[in-house]
C-alpha cells in the first residue's frame, strides 16, 4: 500500500511537471484529486488494510492530497503566467503605424494674428468694435482732417462707389463713429478689412486688414502711447526686441509717430526684408488732433488721447516669414494647412 502510494506520488509528480497547458493540468487534477480520482479510489480501498494501519495510511493519503493540490496550484499559476505572456506577445502591434487623428482644420493665418492682437489689447482694457467697410467720404476722410482734393489723399488711393460713398481706405473712420456716439473715456480697437487701389504684387493687395486703436480721456499722454505700443510689440514679437518711435505725419494726429521694431529677420543687422535699415515699420500712431476731437463734439481743452493703426498682413508676414502677400488670399490648402 505504501509502495503504491509512493508510486502514485512519483507518477503524478512527473505528469504534473510535464503538463504544459492549463487544460491538461485540469485533467490531472480530476484524475488524481477528483471524486472519482485515483487518490479517492485509494482511500476507498483502505478497507482491505488492517485496521491498525489505517490511520497511518489515511494520514499519508491526506498528506499526499495536500502536496498534489499545492503542486497543481503552483503549476497552474506558472502556466497561466506563461500563457498570458504568450498572449500578450501575440497581441503586439506595430506601434509605428500612424495614429488616427480626429479631423481638424486650420484658422486662416490672418485670423490667428487678428485674434492674437485682439487678445493683447482686450487684456489692456480695450474694447473691440467694428465699423462698415463701405464708408462715407466724411468718416474716411473729412472728419479725419482730409478735405476733398487735399494732397494728402494721394497717400491712399481709394475705391469709390459714388461721390460720397467709398470703400474705406483705413480703419480710422471707426474712431469717428465711436466718438460721435460715446462720451470719453473711450478705449477701443477696431479690426477690419480696408481697400486701396493697389495692383496686386508680392507686397501689395487691394484688400488688406488693419487694426485701429483709440484711447481718449482727460489725461492720456504720448508717453502712455509709447508704453501701450511697447507692451503690444513685446507681446506679439517677443521680449527684448528694440523699438523706435520716430516723427511722422498723419492728418488726424499731432504729434504723429511711426514705430519701428528691430528687424525680425536679421535682428537689426540689415537684410533684404528691412532694406538694410535694420528696422521694420510696424505701426503708425499719434495724439488725436484737437480738430478731430472738436468735430465730434469733444472739448479739446479737456480731453486728450492717442490713436494708432497697424497692418495685419505685414505683421503676419513677419511673424511667419511669408514673402508674398498673394499667398494669403489664394487659399491654397498646401499653404493654409501649415498654420
Amino acid at each position: 500500500m505504501r509502495e503504491r502510494l509512493r508510486q502514485m506520488r512519483d507518477e503524478a509528480w512527473k505528469r504534473i511537471s510535464e503538463a504544459d497547458d492549463t487544460g491538461e493540468l485540469d485533467k490531472l487534477r480530476v484524475r488524481y484529486l477528483g471524486k472519482k480520482g485515483e487518490l479517492t479510489a485509494l482511500l476507498r480501498s483502505m478497507g482491505s488494510l488492517p485496521p491498525e494501519e489505517r490511520p497511518d495510511v489515511g494520514k499519508l493519503v491526506n498528506e499526499l492530497r495536500g502536496q498534489l493540490d499545492d503542486f497543481l496550484k503552483e503549476r497552474l499559476h506558472n502556466l497561466e503566467a506563461r500563457e498570458l505572456e504568450k498572449r500578450l506577445e501575440q497581441e503586439a502591434i506595430d506601434i509605428t503605424l500612424p495614429g488616427r487623428r480626429p479631423a481638424f482644420g486650420r484658422k486662416h493665418p490672418l485670423t490667428q494674428v487678428l485674434e492674437e492682437i485682439e487678445t493683447i489689447f482686450v487684456g489692456m482694457g480695450f474694447e473691440v468694435v467694428e465699423g462698415p467697410e463701405v464708408e462715407l467720404d466724411y468718416y474716411n476722410f473729412e472728419a479725419l482732417n482730409l478735405p476733398p482734393d487735399h494732397p494728402t489723399r494721394d497717400m491712399q488711393d481709394t475705391f469709390f462707389i459714388s461721390d460720397d460713398i467709398l470703400l474705406r481706405s483705413q480703419t480710422s473712420p471707426v474712431q469717428i463713429r465711436v466718438m460721435e456716439k460715446q462720451e470719453p473715456p473711450v478705449r477701443i480697437i477696431a479690426p477690419g478689412k480696408v481697400y486701396r487701389v493697389d495692383v496686386v504684387d508680392a507686397t501689395h493687395s487691394p484688400m488688406f486688414h488693419q487694426v485701429e486703436g483709440l484711447l481718449v480721456d482727460e489725461h492720456t499722454t504720448f508717453g502712455d502711447l509709447k508704453g501701450v505700443l511697447g507692451a503690444f510689440i513685446e507681446a506679439i514679437f517677443g521680449e527684448g526686441r528694440r523699438t523706435r518711435f520716430r516723427p511722422s505725419f498723419f492728418p488726424f494726429t499731432e504729434p504723429s509717430a511711426e514705430i519701428d521694431v528691430e528687424c525680425i529677420m536679421c535682428n537689426g543687422k540689415g537684410c533684404r526684408s528691412c532694406s538694410n535699415a535694420g528696422w521694420l515699420e510696424i505701426l503708425g500712431a499719434g495724439m488725436v488732433d484737437p480738430r478731430v476731437l472738436q468735430r465730434v463734439g469733444y472739448d479739446p481743452q479737456k480731453y486728450q488721447g492717442f490713436a494708432f493703426g497697424m497692418g495685419v498682413e505685414r505683421i503676419a508676414m513677419l511673424k511667419y516669414g511669408i514673402d508674398d502677400i498673394r499667398l494669403l488670399f489664394e487659399n491654397d490648402m498646401r499653404f493654409l494647412k501649415q498654420f
Binding site: G123, V128, E130, R187, P191, K226, G227, A231, A257
Partner: peptide, 22 residues
Amino acid sequence: GYDRIPATLPKGVAQGGENRRL
C-alpha cells in the same frame, strides 16, 4: 527726441471686451 519721452501706461481701470458679432 521721441526717445527721451518716458514710456508709461495709461492711468485708470478699463474693462476690455470682445464684440458680440465677432
